[in-house]
Design a protein around this nucleic acid. Sequence first.
DNA 1: TACTATCTCTATAAGATTAGTAGAGTATAC
DNA 2: GTATACTCTACTAATCTTATAGAGATAGTA
Lengths: 146, 146
Amino acid sequence: MRITYKGDYALKAVLALSLKYGSSVVTIHDLAKDADIPIKFLEQVLLELKRGGFVDSRRGKIGGYFLVKPPHKIKIGDIVRFIDGPIEPIACLEKGYTGCRDIYKCAFRHIWQDVSSAISNIIDNVNFQELAAQVNLKQQVLTYSI
Amino acid sequence: MRITYKGDYALKAVLALSLKYGSSVVTIHDLAKDADIPIKFLEQVLLELKRGGFVDSRRGKIGGYFLVKPPHKIKIGDIVRFIDGPIEPIACLEKGYTGCRDIYKCAFRHIWQDVSSAISNIIDNVNFQELAAQVNLKQQVLTYSI
DNA sequence: TACTATCTCTATAAGATTAGTAGAGTATAC
DNA sequence: GTATACTCTACTAATCTTATAGAGATAGTA
């Protein structure tokens, strides 16, 4: 299990859209600029998120992207799994792995299952409303301190 | 962070050597056969483990590999980190990552640090003596049940 | 209608990583 | 001196990652 740049970009995009949820759409251009993401790459990521039912879009002059579901119903784990695949830290947890012929010797399997569970426990316990709230709080602190 | 086949093979090899620690050496041939690993690939893995100070070898007719340290002093995490690199589930934890220009917006970083810690807590809490004991126990149960 | 801003879709590609293969060389026991 | 086992370097096919390119579709508005 590894979060790729694609997954990283997807998380950042969903967070940015969470901050605008219910108020306005955001263009790919703005998303790319704010998060410093190559715009053509971000296009693909957003299309994928759209096909996954996480975001929707409006074309034309006042077009842009917006979240379909409220931020508190989207967990980090949802995005990570959708973009980067299931949480399997090692091949031996995947379907079709044949490397443990003698099941009595596969002493590692339950450890990787533990790792997998531990990761899920973390990334399935944070939603984008909480993240957005943190960002807003930090922005405030930043503003006051200036 | 992902355990590759190389890491998987290294763990299996170290476990096999743990079972023989203090009694005998094991040839690459036997290790490869027991764990169903391509022999030429395993050669490279063992040489790497040797350079890492985990195993040593003896050449010639009664040659083979053996553990340098006692199994209870080798943790799964030691082998994983040595073969597959540090526990970084995402690029943003690596040195030189520049994707979070605005640190106040990097809401994800501490989550990935939590994930990293959770993984370490698991793989640094199991040593090869424990694993070997489990294998021995299972072998016994298997023998009795036949 | 023409224009422009925006999203949509498919193709391509360079670079890195992974998993494995090949073969010649070196040391040791007998 | 010969068989056995480890040592070392190079090579390679396939896949994944991270983009880039460009033509097309849609919507608002002057």
